[in-house]
Nucleic acid binder design. Structure first.
Lengths: 329, 329
DNA sequence: ACTGAAATTGAAATCGATTTCAAATTCTCA
DNA sequence: TGAGAATTTGAAATCGATTTCAATTTCAGT
């Protein structure tokens, strides 16, 4: 492998001058520039990235922690993050936590070893108090999932309100018996959404039935499982408000398989408005989250911090969302 | 930031000894080990990754090039790759090409700058001849997509045979008018599958109708589009063999929306056996690819090369697959 | 107590770039 | 023409680790 010293030797110049050419510094004569360029070509020289990172004290790499690569929600979030990263020539180190606290911890340690310039979290596995120590090691941006007392930039939605309008929609459709499938129990996002759900029921004098509250439902299989539980009940809900289109699609499929009609026997409301929402039968009524925008915004904040060195403080950015009515409710 | 020199100074030892402790070398006295450990803790010291990479001449990072993060097929491929990478403590630099030749080129150049120890390709955008120059810069492993005369380790399926048995299944179901939706035109994988399709038709004396051959169909939207084209035809196929479950799901949804019955009016055969295949109505008959295994195998080959320094040559590994009959055919 | 082997430790070189500082050269304009 | 400024270039320090080589100390077994 050719190094900068080889180029210097071949041209008869110093490493400094070669470096100046590589980095387009002014005050290098045209003649030497050409000389160096030719030598680099001839030697098939490429600067060693590790050496540059060491010297420049930055890596131009951002770690993105996602719980599950195969969950399309996070794929779209990544897509949003990637679209902005690409524009600024930043690399993405994709880290899958599989909801494992230790993995999350290990990945955050990339900040300590200066392997990345920043971390974007799309979920939170550990207690936030335990994660605060990493803040001094480099910028952390939170997106999608959030944490009320986290003093870091955050991008997300008003999930209480999301839960509220979704539930209200079902009530307005005439439902009195409404179930709720939430995501993980440790998720503040899910808890907020549930709070919105409860608020809507309360306002309309409807009771919250705890046997109709399902936890940890976040994919197709989870949706199917919930339906099976519902089918085993004497008293069944007539509508379900679900935390993701994946889960909702699983519910519709399983419910139909057991002879229920959607929405007559069971109305299903999704969340996200993913592609899958258009191919269920009937198509899903859902609350559209601007997933890619959430990712973009998060990466833009990161860029403000690490590239433009702005002091962004810890803004809590809330993006808008809306209900999209299709056939499932 | 504390460096190894700070630890050395605090302990009164040399950097060498500290380094030995960090790397668990033998021949360091218990006493000094404790001393160094304490100092590291006290100074909150973490070794600088860039410095280590520079010195060790390896990055423990693999670049994975995928065309599209939001395509679930590649998400599962990534999942397979990641599962093995995690086991060996390798980082994944995820690079989305968006089917762009220049991006692919740029990402492959990570090998030249020694930013990654190897590259896994899951698709190919440039002419293979143009990519061969990168082989000398570091190991390249091909998975999913392949290239007949590429002298690099490759993991995939016998797609000709896949196309053949899929088509044969439709023929055995009594269909005489069969359409085919393939992926990108530059994909050898897609071409092989199409070859299998043609072979099956030929063997049964059925003609290939070029207006029933759809190119570039690779997601839900593509499937819907193809159905709209079919509906506009005077002579319609009675069955479609599609290159992905995504596309097949889109077709079923759109066909039903226009009043076609599945499979009576239009039989749809998918490919991959993704989660979505179980929630369409009727559920999808499909050819199951062991997607995650493909990814795992590819990463295992990479590990044989970069960790175990095996001379793996350029094996072409072909994994098995099978047809899963559900309701759509 | 002595000898050869093993254990323990440190000084200095090295990985491959960038940047500072200063020296040498060229330019500008009174 | 000469002084001061601007341009051009290189030597050496630096980023933060690892490793080689050699020196010293300790150990095992007579």
């Amino acid at each position: 492998m050719a190094t900068i010293a080889d180029v210097a030797k071949l041209t008869g110049l110093s490493r400094s001058t070669v470096s100046r050419v590589i980095n387009h510094y002014p005050h290098v004569s045209e003649e030497k520039i050409r000389l160096v360029r030719d030598a680099m070509e001839q030697l098939n020289y490429y600067p060693n990235a590790s050496a540059q990172k060491l010297r420049n004290q930055k890596t131009d790499t951002i770690a993105v922690l996602v719980p599950l690569l195969t969950n399309p929600f996070f794929a779209y979030l990544l897509e949003g993050i990637d679209s902005v990263a690409t524009k600024y020539n930043l690399q993405l180190l994709v880290c899958q936590t599989k909801h494992d606290r230790e993995k999350e911890w290990k990945f955050l340690s990339l900040l300590k070893t200066k392997q990345v310039d920043g971390v974007i979290l799309t979920a939170i596995e550990n207690e936030w108090d335990k994660l605060t120590e990493f803040i001094e090691d480099g910028p952390i941006v939170l997106c999608n999932e959030y944490e009320k007392n986290a003093h870091v930039p955050t991008v997300g939605l008003d999930q209480v309100y999301g839960g509220y309008i979704g539930t209200k929609h079902l009530i307005e459709k005439g439902h009195q018996h409404i179930a709720h499938c939430r995501g993980r129990m440790i998720s503040e996002l899910s808890s907020d959404r549930e709070a919105g759900f409860r608020k809507a029921l309360n306002e309309h004098g409807l009771a919250v039935r705890k046997e109709w509250m399902f936890g940890d439902v976040s994919d197709i299989e989870g949706g199917k499982r919930a339906v099976r539980e519902i089918l085993a009940m004497k008293e069944r809900p007539t509508a379900v408000f679900t935390g993701s289109d994946q889960a909702a699609a699983g519910m519709i499929s399983e419910a139909k398989r057991h002879g229920l009609r959607i929405p007559e026997d069971l109305a299903v409301l999704g969340f996200d408005d993913q592609q899958i929402a258009t191919i269920t039968d009937p198509p899903l009524t859902t609350i559209k989250q601007p997933i890619e925008e959430i990712g973009q915004k998060a990466m833009e904040l990161m860029i403000d911090i690490i590239i433009y060195k702005k002091d962004v403080k810890a803004p809590k950015i809330r993006l808008p969302f809306k209900l999209i009515e299709r056939g499932s409710t």
